[in-house]
């Protein structure tokens, strides 16, 4: 499922993003690397402030600069660095080749324009379609994301749709130009559980149908488990662990991932006291020296306070490297074995 044939669709290399604030420089992203291939779902997991959304915004080129700046790094889309290419070339990729779905569908849609008009605009602006064709295309798209009675509802306004339906419209909009990559930033967080399932299913299905790459940004370990192929766990602007989805849940190789998994109550388990990661996520203005997780880590030693562990390949007991698994912990072996 995760075999990479040839060039990856998107290759983020050593990306750094900083925000200049009154109080200093906040290091939101500190050397992130990840790749997504066509037909693959990468879940980027992290809490607020982990840099997961900032990374996505950097890829999309929708960061406000200033206050943001990208001091270092490459974002290769089909081998081309989007950070160095011209503005026009970049704009062509954004929206047409890479599309984004946001958490809040209501505020992402223009309230005074009908849904059909907004969907059709994609075709009018990018494909030069006529009004009539654009509307027909809009109906077709709404059908595809399974909005019932699409032909009747195409002239409705965003507020006339429920939350789940609005998120479907956002998905339709992202799909309109048949992009190669979709970035979904917490697409179901604002939705109810029962609707969440519908939307996630739809997204996964369409992804398979169009053979797109999908980056799913979320804080919800449950959502990720259902659809992702591989996971990157972020903490304080760094990727602390990457793994194929099954491996990660079976045996995390980073104490932060382990802590996260242990700290969520599970529907199928009624435990006593929940495990809680002590402390708080770090202040991005002053990320602690050494491993950023060390002040909260039960395993922290002196070395963790001195040197920041690089993301290292995880090797199985038989000496074979585990495909796609890496951990940024000095003690990943011990963490892995802890199970």
């Amino acid at each position: 499922m995760t075999t990479i044939v040839g060039m990856p669709l998107l290759d983020v290399r050593d990306l750094h993003v900083e925000f200049v604030t009154r109080d200093g420089v906040a290091k939101a992203v500190n050397g992130v690397n990840y790749r997504v291939s066509a037909g693959e779902t990468l879940a980027v997991l992290g809490e607020s402030g982990s840099g997961k959304s900032v990374t996505a915004q950097a890829i999309m080129g929708i960061l406000d600069m200033p206050p943001a700046r990208i001091p270092k790094g490459q974002i290769l889309f089909k081998g081309e660095d989007m950070l160095t290419m011209g503005k026009d070339a970049r704009r062509k990729i954004r929206g047409q080749k890479i599309a984004m779905i946001f958490q809040d569908a209501l505020s992402s849609l223009n309230p005074v324009l009908s849904v059909g008009y907004q969907l059709g605009e994609m075709f009018r602006a990018h494909r030069g379609a006529s009004h009539k064709d654009a509307k027909a295309k809009a109906v077709e798209l709404m059908d595809r994301v399974r909005i019932p009675a699409a032909a009747q509802r195409v002239n409705d306004y965003p507020h006339q749709f429920s939350g789940g339906m609005r998120q479907r419209i956002m998905i339709a909009m992202a799909l309109a130009l048949e992009p190669d990559l979709i970035i979904a930033d917490e697409p179901t967080t604002a939705l109810d559980v029962t609707v969440q399932a519908q939307v996630m299913d739809l997204l996964a299905e369409l992804q398979a149908e169009y053979h797109m790459g999908l980056i799913l940004i979320t804080h919800d370990l449950g959502v990720v488990a259902d659809v992702a192929d591989k996971i990157a766990v972020m903490y304080a602007g760094q990727i602390v662990e990457t793994a194929p989805v099954h491996d990660l849940y079976a045996a995390p190789a980073h104490p932060y991932t382990r802590g996260l998994l242990d700290s969520i109550p599970r529907l199928d388990q009624k435990g006593q006291e929940l495990f809680a990661i002590k402390g708080l996520p770090p202040n991005l203005l002053r990320i602690p020296p050494g491993c950023p997780f060390n002040p909260r880590c039960p395993r922290a030693q002196d070395i963790c306070r001195r040197t920041d562990p690089p993301l290292t390949q995880v090797v199985a007991d038989d000496g074979e490297p585990v495909l796609g698994r890496a951990s940024a912990c000095h003690f990943w072996k011990e963490t892995l074995r802890d199970d």
Partner: peptide, 12 residues
Amino acid sequence: LLSAVPVPDPTA
């Protein structure tokens, strides 16, 4: 409702 809750366990 119960069946829709995402379980953080891909084997499930």
